[in-house]
Simulated assay, not measured.
Amino acid sequence: MDWINYTLFTFAGDRPVLLIDLVTSVLGLTCVFLAGRNNKYNFWVGYLYTVALFLMFWNKNLYASLLLQPISLGINILGHYRWTHPKKEEESSQDASSLKVSMLSWTERAFAIAMVFLIAGVWGWILDSLFPGDPHPYLDSCVTVLILVAQFLSAQKKWDCWIAWLLVNITQLILHISVGHVFMPIVCTLYLINGISALVGWMKLYRKKA
């Protein structure tokens, strides 16, 4: 596992850029690019991305994000199944074997927001108590909960998932910069661009019931 700590070069004098950062960046960009274009193959890349994230967060002592990965893997498997095995009333107008894009109700959105704040607060407190080595327990936990919500909505092919992903990208951008990552802030910026594009693209699919 020595390759995880392999340094490609140093940034700003003393900040190392690791190989795992580059691998994670490439996999992440590929995954969200495919998802934003309603491509079911994003899930296959997502499996590899989950493993890479686990290794990267382990290396950076970001424990809340690390513990997310097994759950993330489970949601990825659920989403893979849901996207390719829709119920009759959920079938896309363009492809009966694909799940169509749908939206949350305002009540469901309010509930999701409340749960993010509640769970993130509790998780941050627990993380700070059990893992004092985490440099940003509450920010780390907020990112964790937002990712879970975004992934679950993505698995259900809800248009609202891209709102959640945009919030994740902004929060992660702050988190990665604070711990000295180099590639991931660049990736998060590209995520934002992709997220905005996907937000528009999925709205068109929603209107077409596709």
Rank of each mutant, 00 (worst) to 15 (best):
I177L: 15
A12G: 11
Y138M: 10
L205A: 07
Y41I: 13
T189I: 15
A150I: 01
I119S: 03
K209M: 04
W162L: 06
K157A: 09
G79M: 08
L167K: 08
V149E: 03
N5C: 11
F117C: 10
C31V: 04
F183P: 04
D140W: 01
V187S: 07
Y63F: 13
W44D: 10
I147V: 11
M184D: 11
D160F: 00
N169F: 00
L78I: 14
Y63A: 10
K158I: 04
D14T: 15
V26Q: 05
S197T: 08
A120M: 01
K60F: 09
L205E: 02
F54M: 12
L62V: 09
E89V: 00
L22P: 08
V187Q: 10
Q172L: 15
A198W: 02
N39F: 04
D21V: 11
D21G: 14
T107Y: 00
W106L: 14
V168W: 00
K209T: 05
I113R: 12
A150L: 02
I196V: 15
P70H: 02
V179D: 06
I170K: 13
T50L: 07
Y49Q: 09
I4C: 07
A164N: 05
W3N: 07
T24A: 15
M1T: 11
W106T: 07
G201I: 02
C161M: 14
T107I: 03
Y63G: 10
L192D: 08
I75D: 06
V149A: 13
N76Q: 08
S72P: 05
G121S: 01
V182C: 06
V45D: 12
V149L: 14
V32T: 13
I75F: 14
I20D: 03
I75S: 12
I71E: 05
H80A: 14
T189F: 07
N169S: 15
Y191I: 13
H85F: 01
M56A: 12
P86M: 02
L27E: 04
Q156F: 01
W159M: 02
G201N: 14
T107E: 00
Y41N: 13
H80W: 08
G133D: 13
A112V: 14
N59A: 10
H136Y: 08
D140C: 12
N76A: 09
L118N: 09
S102C: 01
L130V: 14
K209L: 03
A96E: 10
V17G: 15
L19Q: 09
P16F: 10
V145N: 00
A155I: 04
F11T: 12
A114Y: 02
